[in-house]
């Protein structure tokens, strides 16, 4: 387990370095589109001030990524979704919500550490307070007292920490099972796995199978509460791969900027 994780970590770091270099050189060649009047409409809607941070996704691994996207799509429809539906049928909503709360609370160390790394002091204290309150009054995190809090903390992870200090996202990457990520956030995910109680070995020693079991359960539980988000995206978009790719990159950018 630990040696394979080290390998992944190394591989990702190399990719990541290459990605950073390539994005830095690619950024020079772009010219902004000049704004001008268009026929029929009084305003030029092709270019607005809010487009300044237009996001160009860099996807050199597209054929591989599309393969993984196809694989994850099949995994979703033939394995995860049927299991989630069966589970949903036999487990009441409050129970599933409590499990969801439990896993969310369990990953609080990741959010606390990364809030602190970005010197978001209020956010760190908010996360810390919620973690203490939910773990005690909320009975190990089964109940979420967040609704009583004055502010909703913004959840931080290591990918955002890297972004906060100026690391570009690098190329888009679709991992089997884990789904959408990019070079920067993949490195972030590896780093976060060291501070998260699941799967980090520094809290409770667990077998790989136990970790995988818990993570699968977390995913299935989450899916059982989801209202067919992926189905809607797949139904509506001309090319779901492009929709998910852009949506993911926009969302990550917004989280880094926050």
């Amino acid at each position: 387990m630990s040696s394979s994780r080290l390998m992944t970590c190394l591989m990702l770091s190399v990719w990541f370095l290459l990605a950073t270099l390539a994005t830095a050189t690619a950024a020079d060649g772009e010219t902004p589109v000049p704004a001008g009047p268009t026929a029929g409409l009084e305003r030029d809607w092709t270019q607005l001030p809010s487009d300044e941070q237009e996001l160009e996704v860099w996807d050199p691994l597209e054929p591989f990524n599309r393969g993984m996207f196809w694989f994850n799509d099949k995994l979703y429809f033939y394995a995860l979704k049927p299991v989630a539906k069966g589970y949903r049928a036999v487990t009441p909503v409050p129970v599933r919500e409590s499990f969801g709360n439990f896993f969310r609370n369990l990953s609080a160390p990741v959010r606390i550490v990364n809030s602190l790394l970005q010197f978001k002091i209020t956010n760190t204290l908010d996360e810390l307070t919620m973690f203490c309150a939910n773990s005690t009054l909320g009975i190990g995190g089964l109940f979420d007292l967040r609704n009583n809090a004055p502010r909703e903390p913004s959840p931080e992870d290591f990918g955002q920490t890297l972004g906060h200090y100026g690391t570009p996202p690098g190329f888009y990457l679709v991992l089997p099972v884990l789904g959408s990520t990019n070079a920067r956030d993949a490195v972030g995910q590896v780093a976060d796995s060291l501070t998260a109680p699941v799967p980090s070995p520094y809290y409770v020693k667990m077998e790989t199978a136990e970790v995988a079991g818990l993570e699968t359960f977390d995913t299935v539980n989450g899916l059982s509460l989801d209202k067919d988000t992926y189905e809607a995206i797949k139904r509506e978009s001309l090319d779901p791969y492009l929709f998910v790719r852009n949506g993911f990159m926009q969302q990550r950018q917004a989280k880094v900027d926050k």
Binding site: V57, L238, L242, F243, N246
Partner: peptide, 9 residues
Amino acid sequence: KNYRSSYGE
């Protein structure tokens, strides 16, 4: 923005 990136491609 999302539509723009897909449709552009």
